[in-house]
Write a protein that binds this DNA or RNA. Structure first.
Length: 392
DNA sequence: ATAGGGTTAG
């Protein structure tokens, strides 16, 4: 059976809008070929050949239908992601998108820091009943990243379904959002409520709260309480947990505690990674113990790890705190050679140490070097020559 | 289908 159709009159939108980029020629479109049997037809007339279906072709047809719907969903995801008018593209494509597609778009917006789009999409998903647990945990995580902990709490508090409210992923997201925004105490209070409501915390839950102990006063004793609780709940210490505890020790200048956790984790069969080495080095920096720091970096190298920018910058901090300024300058030169001195941090470390040791001329010399090299200043305000000299 | 956790300065 053959049917001739004039596409330009029947399906004008096919001709006027470009095919989505994910369509490749001849992929899984119905058999289309130009009409040869009508000399009078316009160029846009094509013939669609519809073959009679046998059971076998029916199966193929069902498969093609499935893959067509997958292709059109995939292209709709791209259209929505790239759209400059989210509301209208959701109106156009929202109907064919499944929750998992919308979650992928949500994560895409979050990774690109497109906060207004993120919220607009989540609102749309809620209004159309197209959310899952993953939507909530992703959205709340990104609200934490965009510094909107109150908004995250509002979303969480408006969840009515009890099992959703005590879902460990969602709870971890909310807690992480609070901790990230400096609200550890509120986080711990909420954590207690969550447990009362039936949350079974896991290692990630505890690690989230332990992270909050890094930059907080009395953080070490809070961390110890959490460790006690997680062990009581039958949870094991994992590699990330050791990393956080090492950071807590470093932040509280507890180099002996850090050393003991470091050895403990090795005894339990966890190989230290750059995070662990960096935190232990940082703990050594508080007492300027450069012998132990050098030894540790050697150990790191012989384990097959290459010291990265953070490791070498932290080692510089140890040298500076230990008063080894010649060694510090050598290491700073090495950092520069490796391309690790593109921002101001290592220079600031050295200048700070020199200034505190009363070696002002040397500090000024480092400052001049910093200015000559057009070093980037990151988040902090640019260094001002006059202000700096005033401080000296 | 499938989300949530760790490192460097003042």
């Amino acid at each position: 059976m053959e049917i001739s159709v004039n596409l330009s009159t029947r399906f004008p939108h096919i001709l006027s809008s470009p095919l989505p980029s994910s369509f490749s020629a001849g992929s899984s479109l119905p058999a289309l070929r130009p009409s040869h049997n009508s000399a009078t037809a316009a160029k846009t007339t094509i013939t669609i050949v519809v073959k009679e279906q046998t059971p076998a072709t029916a199966l193929i047809s069902r498969r093609n239908h499935k893959s067509n719907s997958y292709l059109s969903r995939k292209s709709a995801v791209l259209q929505v992601q790239q759209s400059s008018d989210l509301a209208s593209s959701l109106q156009r494509f929202g109907g064919i998108l499944k929750v998992q597609d919308l979650n992928a778009i949500l994560r895409h917006f979050g990774e690109q820091n497109r906060w207004p789009d993120l919220s607009q999409l989540f609102n749309w998903m809620q209004q159309h009943g197209k959310t899952s647990v993953s939507s909530y945990s992703s959205y709340i995580k990104f609200l934490g990243k965009s510094l909107k902990p109150l908004k995250a709490l509002e979303i969480y508090n408006n969840i009515t379904d009890e099992s959703t409210k005590t879902n460990v992923f969602i709870c971890n997201s909310v807690l992480s959002c609070l901790v990230r925004n400096g609200k550890l105490d509120s986080g711990i209070k909420l954590f207690d409520k969550m447990k009362q409501n039936g949350l079974t915390p896991d290692a990630v839950t505890y690690n989230t709260l332990l992270t909050g102990c890094i930059k907080v006063k009395r953080g070490y004793s809070k961390a110890l309480e959490l460790v006690q609780e997680l062990k009581h709940n039958g949870l094991q210490m994992d590699s990330v947990m050791y990393g956080i505890l090492l950071a807590v020790c470093a932040a509280n200048s507890l180099h002996e505690g850090a050393e003991s956790y470091f050895n403990c984790m090795k005894d339990e069969g966890h190989s230290p990674n750059p995070f662990h080495y960096s935190s232990l080095l940082n703990a050594y920096s508080s007492v300027g113990n450069y012998e132990k720091a050098d030894e540790l970096v050697q150990e790191m190298k012989s384990s097959g790890l290459v010291p990265n920018k953070v490791i070498l910058t932290t080692l510089l901090k140890v040298y500076v705190r230990g008063g080894l300024f010649d060694k510090s300058r050598e290491l700073l030169a090495e950092l520069d050679t490796l391309g690790y001195a593109e921002d101001e941090m290592p220079y600031c470390l050295l200048m700070d140490g020199l200034a505190k040791a009363g070696r002002l001329d040397e500090a000024k010399a480092v400052f001049s070097e910093l200015k000559e090299k057009s070093v980037k200043s990151g988040k902090s305000p640019p260094l001002d020559d006059d202000l700096f000299l005033q401080d000296l």
